[in-house]
């Protein structure tokens, strides 16, 4: 006795569902594409971190006297280049995207140098061919044993 209904989608339904779906799908699509980029960023970060450790460790392996204070930028931190004009040379594994920077400061107490503060900063591109550079920094203190 009741009217038999026609099953079907009205236009409104289609529009609505398409809208909802696209709203839900938007972040999903973005994730799909950004997932790759995240992996790439992590890889750049990893290389920057490894380069930072390499630079930091080679400096703190030197005797205190040879760790010369100063600021050194990526133009000076090159494989085989002299460190602060001393016989010590830099060892830098090949990584053209990375820009290392080194800062060594003396901390004095009563006119005697007690520590040197070493800051290593590596600037790395946030994605493989991106222009945006990010920073990774490592810091430590080295003590003067000659007191």
């Amino acid at each position: 006795m009741n009217r038999s209904h026609r099953t079907g989608l009205s236009l409104i339904e289609i529009v609505l569902s398409m809208g909802i779906l696209s709203l839900i799908m938007l972040p999903v699509f973005m994730t799909f594409s950004s997932g790759n980029i995240n992996i790439q960023v992590t890889e750049s970060e990893f290389r920057a971190h490894t380069a930072a450790l390499e630079l930091m460790e080679q400096i703190i392996s030197l005797p205190f006297k040879l760790i010369k204070a100063g600021e050194y930028d990526s133009g000076q931190i090159i494989e085989g280049r002299s460190f602060a004009g001393s016989p010590v040379i830099f060892r830098v594994s090949d990584n053209p995207d990375l820009k290392p920077a080194l800062k060594i400061e003396e901390i004095k107490r009563e006119n005697k140098v007690v520590f040197k503060k070493i800051t290593v900063t590596i600037a790395y591109p946030s994605a493989r061919a991106s222009d945006r550079m990010r920073d990774f920094t490592l810091k430590t203190l080295v003590a003067n044993e000659d007191i």
Partner: peptide, 18 residues
């Protein structure tokens, strides 16, 4: 995936030089 680096053992080097 390639990675190239050099590891410097700091304490060992300090002992070596003293």
């Amino acid at each position: 995936f390639a990675i190239k680096t050099t590891i410097f053992p700091a304490r060992l080097n300090r002992q070596l030089n003293s």
